[in-house]
Design a protein around this nucleic acid. Structure first.
Ligand SMILES: [Mn+2]
Ligand SMILES: [Mn+2]
Ligand SMILES: [Mn+2]
Ligand SMILES: [Mn+2]
Lengths: 218, 218
DNA sequence: ATATAGTGTTAGATTAGTCTAACAAAATTC
DNA sequence: GAATTTTGTTAGACTAATCTAACACTATAT
């Protein structure tokens, strides 16, 4: 099977493909914090091992095999995060770094057991979907809070980014998943939103924050 | 910090030092399943990094730093094994391989949390002591069942070896830790023992088995 | 005390994963 | 379309961890 290094490349390719349409050497280099020559040589190897399709100067594309492998690593990552929060009492801002390591553990039984003990959760602690055992992932088509209108009543279901800083910011405002939000006003100047929710009759959230909150009409 | 490879060398050195009095290159080579030249060159590196003291043709000895590091890895290994059994429902024969990987995870909070959730267990699922956070380990001075006499009533508290085969053998006889055993007879010819315990009025255990069972008078 | 077996060392090679320096190609801007 | 910036590639080097082949040292046995 793939080394942890290869697994991290596959996961990065999978994540970047869902952001940009095309993934290039520079994208990977920045995302993985390794030099471009390093990526270049690794991508040649990944190509030879049929994880990706790659030709010089062209974008890098995961093969079916590569995409499935990436989704299964993501499955292990997200099951682990959910397990750490649900069963071990960690905060949602603490689990990513730990899951980044445990996702490389080769022990299917461990992840199956987590899955079962949590009764087969569909999302991780940040609302991201957990791929199934075949590597299939259900696309949640949520809307960004920033795209909503004044008067909308919505429920927060996921985040587009889950950096520690951002999660700690949300903690400080007592914002968590499943929270019901109402848009009281939108400031035309900077698109910041005046939001009301449980115990917080009036909080201002910048556009940058609202861009990262995924919601559904409630 | 140390790489997983270095950590495995330290753990092997620690384990071997508790079996033999002197640990040499061949011992490590066999235990870690790598060639002797590989061990030779790695031991030079370990010496330079002050994990061990080593001079050509002399036995390898862990430094204080090396011994503590090894004990802390063992702590992570054993906490993990206990967690997998106690909190996740794995059998004692399933957990070693998983713990062998998770022991290398760099996340003190994870192991602290396991420890707390289990209310600070003192031993792993095979009865081996869990080193404390300073790397100190309490020596249990148990006796081998094979050293007991006819008529002794004892309780099984630990195992000297925990191979999957052996654990499955014990499962097949419904032998588990904390079990009360009574020695009914000892066969002079092969030193096998006739043992009686809960629901098993009379089982014969070979000397090889009795050598691996650690007990205390009850 | 010598032969033999066991143990340890050296030399040299390999693979995975990384780097920097230099240059080349492609894309963007003017 | 030419200049500039961005992106990609090559070449060459390095470290960690491993190997085999050959030889050297030590310990054991006859
Ligand atoms: Mn994560
Ligand atoms: Mn990772
Ligand atoms: Mn173990
Ligand atoms: Mn290990």
């Amino acid at each position: 099977m793939a080394s942890p290094t290869v697994e991290n490349y596959l996961k990065a390719l999978y994540a970047l493909a869902n952001e940009d349409d095309e993934v290039n050497i520079s994208d990977l280099s920045i995302h993985l914090k390794v030099s471009k020559p390093t990526v270049n040589s690794m991508v040649k190897t990944l190509n030879q091992q049929d994880w990706v399709n790659y030709e010089r100067y062209k974008p890098i594309v995961l093969t079916r095999k590569g995409r499935k492998a990436a989704a299964l690593i993501l499955r292990k990552h997200r099951l682990t995060e959910m397990y750490l929060v649900e069963k071990m009492g960690f905060g949602w801002e603490e689990v990513h770094e730990i899951a980044e390591q445990i996702e490389h553990v080769k022990a299917p039984a461990l992840f199956d057991r987590m899955d079962k003990l949590m009764d087969f959760p569909k999302v991780d602690p940040h609302g991201s979907p957990i791929p199934d055992k075949d590597g299939n992932i259900i696309d949640q088509n949520y809307k960004k809070l920033s795209e909503c209108k004044v008067g909308d009543q919505v429920v927060l279901l996921a985040l587009t980014h889950s950096s520690k800083d951002f999660l700690e910011f949300l903690d400080s405002r007592e914002i968590s998943l499943k929270l019901e939000l109402e848009i009281k006003a939108i400031e035309p100047f900077d698109s910041s939103m005046l939001i009301s929710y449980y115990n917080h009759p009036s909080e201002t959230l910048s556009q940058k924050v609202c861009d990262r909150l995924l919601v559904q009409k409630s």
